[in-house]
């Protein structure tokens, strides 16, 4: 069975090497892509075009993606809820605990920076949320599971509340577009603060949607990891 897999990998890698010549260059764009590139900054105010497409043009798809994470976190919580905590009770040695205590604030600040600067530089709500979730994983592995239950921000009960807050914030921003007489998740037409493109407070509802998505992803993924690690 393994040899068939290796053969499959060989064939697929041949296709991968041959497809290097067909990577498109930037001058011949499709009509939709050239519309996004030419008028993206004017339409949304965000200089990061990937985030402009994710949270403005295709915001409804991002809502579906957030729903997937919510459903998987709920399923993990349901499957592993009645188990008791046996493993990772006391954590690792004091050297590792001290080192983790020194550099955990920097990981948290970096995650918050990636979320907040998502509309002006590479990054965004999903990436920053996963960085904060991996900080939560590190805290679980280093300090043990009981430490995490005692912490206020990272405890599982607060995490599920934070995930609900993120989801309702996303839906509320979307419904604001309808209440002001536009379509669902409309950005600058709904009267959000436009600002100057490239500045911190700009791009209308995109930073708020980044924060909502970041809260949701961070809380959801840390719930998933906590459920798996806490089960027997």
């Amino acid at each position: 069975m393994k040899y068939y897999c290796v053969l499959l990998i060989a064939v697929l890698s041949l296709v991968l090497f041959l497809s290097l010549q067909d990577i498109p260059v930037a001058q011949d764009l499709m009509p939709a892509s050239s519309h996004y590139v030419n008028s993206g900054v004017r339409d949304t105010g965000a200089t990061n075009l990937v985030n402009a497409i994710l949270f403005d043009y295709r915001g409804f798809d991002t809502l579906g993606e957030a729903t997937v994470i919510f459903a998987s976190a709920a399923a993990f919580k349901m499957l592993f809820s009645h188990k008791r905590i046996f493993s990772f009770r006391y954590g690792l040695s004091p050297i590792v605990k001290t080192g983790m205590g020194i550099y955990s604030p920097f990981i948290f600040i970096f995650g918050i920076y990636v979320i907040m600067a998502g509309h002006i530089s590479p990054g965004g709500g999903f990436q920053g949320g996963v960085i904060i979730a991996s900080l939560s994983i590190l805290l679980t592995l280093v300090y043990g599971l009981w430490y995490k239950v005692r912490r206020t921000v990272f405890s599982p009960a607060i995490s599920s509340n934070i995930e609900s807050i993120g989801g309702f914030l996303f839906l509320g921003i979307g419904l604001t577009g309808i209440l002001t007489g536009n379509y669902f998740l409309s950005n600058l037409d709904a009267g959000f603060f436009a600002g100057t493109p490239g500045h911190m407070f700009s791009a209308g509802s995109i930073p708020i949607l980044n924060i909502a998505s970041g809260l949701k992803v961070a809380a959801g993924l840390s719930i998933i990891f906590y459920s798996i690690a806490g089960g027997e």
Binding site: V130, S134, I137, L141, L221, I224, F225, I228
Partner: peptide
């Protein structure tokens, strides 16, 4: 980060 941690657990 995340997938490796899940697999190792």
């Amino acid at each position: 980060g995340f997938t490796t941690a899940l697999f190792i657990i």
